[in-house]
Amino acid sequence: MTRRPLVSLLVTVTVLLAACGGSGGDGGGDAASEAAPTLTVYSGRSEELVRPVIEQFEGETGVPVQVRYGATAEMAGAILEEGDNSPADVFFAQDAGALGALSSEGRFAQLDAGTLEQVDPQFRSVNGDWVGVSGRARVAVYNTALLNEGALPDSILDFTDPSWKGRLGWAPTNGSFQAFVTALRVIEGETRAREWLEGIQANEPKVYGGNTAIVQAVAAGEIDAGFVNHYYLHRVKAENPDFPAANHLFPDGDVGSLVNVAGVGILEGSDQPDEARQLVEFLLSEPAQQYFSAETFEIPLVDGVAADPSLPPLETLQQPDLDLAQLSDLEGTLRLLTEVGVI
């Protein structure tokens, strides 16, 4: 009697092993040895987002693609550890920092000038070995019922004015916010960055867990304005056009409207450089650029691509004078945020 659960457990495990033992292999472990060459992509961007583009690429070119999904940093770490034996042909990263790290370790092959030139120099590698695919801008989102855009300052630095007391929201633990603080440190220096954080802190901002929460709080009138990435508002507005909020872009290359990019590079030593190039070209082609703009409301980086009409045109975004690949000292930023008592 008492033996039964044990026996059934054993049987279940055995059956499952037998059943799955055969099917597990088509996950791709043996694919490398198969005859048809497969392009291997390491993606730091999520499958939800990337898979449709890859499927379209496969359909158009007939090049079979396998994608390994993970967090950008871990994928980059894996590529570094794999060294020359990396199975990856292409790395598609969420942010410029990881691309910069691989570039400086010499892990990327040179891209063609024709590929690079499609994208403005500020959104690609200074070494010519990775290229931005889509961009996201930092903005201040504000409540349109409570404020006119004219009431918002031209520089994010001016939000330290005491008139903003109790009216602001931010998400200090958010990665994009922290990248902005890193840029602030690089551009304005450590002292000014600290002063800004202390100034905002003195205005008693409400703290949120993420960008979406800030956008919702702004629309609810809980706060007048908050610091976010541009696309969260667009996602909400796509479902609810009357949502009472708008994005404010800081003009004249203000650090408040820093644009960070997702981008792509080809691994040095890839055994399929031609197919890899085809994929990079595809990501910069009109259909793929439009897909990112329509699906994620990110900003297409290729000139002349018709973006979603609600998005700020690329020309209006004036990037502060900064190499995105420099935004790597997150540890220093976290220390500063901790010292100021923000996190």
Partner: peptide, 15 residues
């Protein structure tokens, strides 16, 4: 968490 941050931010493997 800090080890992850080291990887995430700077890929500073030795730190």
């Amino acid at each position: 968490r800090v080890i992850y941050v080291q990887y995430q931010a700077s890929l500073d493997r030795s730190a």
